[in-house]
């Protein structure tokens, strides 16, 4: 059955280079596939190109060559406006440093992606409350980001990424700045949404212990894919 599914996320010969005195390929000819409902974890040491790859997958940056397909649709030729609309529908992004809008409350931060995509206010607020409840932040829903701890902010960011029920959630070192207890809580969240809502996740981490939660482990080194391990669910 698995083989008949089309990948929800796919890259074809993807390249990204930066100029650091000379051309440095942060992503070098990368070909990966992520199937629907999977938790894919990209691991590798610092500077191996994980974050760059995730940025490219989310349309936050542009490759110099290659293709990125989300639900079989290429995103590399889209302009910034089309990319924003694509992200609205298909991508939830969790940044390493949370990146919540500082003057909005937790509830408003989670509500915002739904409001700007045209969801009715009551419906958006109800789902935002539901998501905050899921991440255990109902009592803190009216606090602004600067009134929340790092772990709480990260959970708000996760709730926000799930707001529009995206095809795939991309998370850049979601546990990188968290203590072990909060880290476990966050990982548990991902697993829960994966199980209950069949949500696809692509996570980046340099913490190899998290790979035990993954259905697919992609190892990177110097911008290249070193290994892809697919695990039975």
């Amino acid at each position: 059955m698995e083989n008949t599914k089309r990948p929800i996320l796919e890259t074809v010969n993807l390249n990204k280079a930066f100029y650091l005195g000379e051309a440095v390929y942060a992503v070098n000819n990368v070909n990966i596939q992520v199937m629907p409902g999977e938790i894919a974890i990209i691991v590798g040491p610092s500077g191996s190109g994980k974050s760059t790859l995730l940025s490219l997958l989310g349309g936050l940056d542009r490759p110099i060559s290659g293709d990125i397909l989300i639900n079989d649709k290429s995103i590399v030729k889209l302009n910034e406006d089309e990319l924003a609309l694509m992200r609205r529908k298909n991508i939830g992004y969790v940044f390493q440093f949370f990146n919540l809008i500082p003057h909005l409350s937790a509830l408003e931060n989670v509500e915002l992606p739904m409001s700007i995509s045209g969801m009715a206010r009551n419906e958006a607020r109800e789902r935002a409350r539901f998501l905050l409840d899921e991440v255990g932040l109902t009592p803190r829903s009216h606090h602004r980001p600067d009134q929340l701890s790092g772990g709480e902010q990260q959970r708000v960011a996760i709730a926000r990424s799930l707001a529009n029920k995206p095809a795939v959630v991309l998370a850049d070192e979601p546990t990188g700045n968290l203590d072990s207890k909060t880290r476990d809580m966050v990982i548990e969240l991902f697993c829960r949404f994966n199980e209950t809502e069949k949500q696809t996740f692509v996570l980046i981490t340099h913490d190899t212990s998290l790979t035990s939660y993954a259905h697919r482990v992609i190892s990177m080194m110097d911008g290249k894919i070193e290994d892809i391990e697919v695990r039975p669910r």
Binding site: L60, E80, D81, A84, R87, N99, P113, S117
Partner: peptide, 9 residues
Amino acid sequence: IMKSIGVSN
């Protein structure tokens, strides 16, 4: 952040 969550131009 706004662009990343899908706010259009």
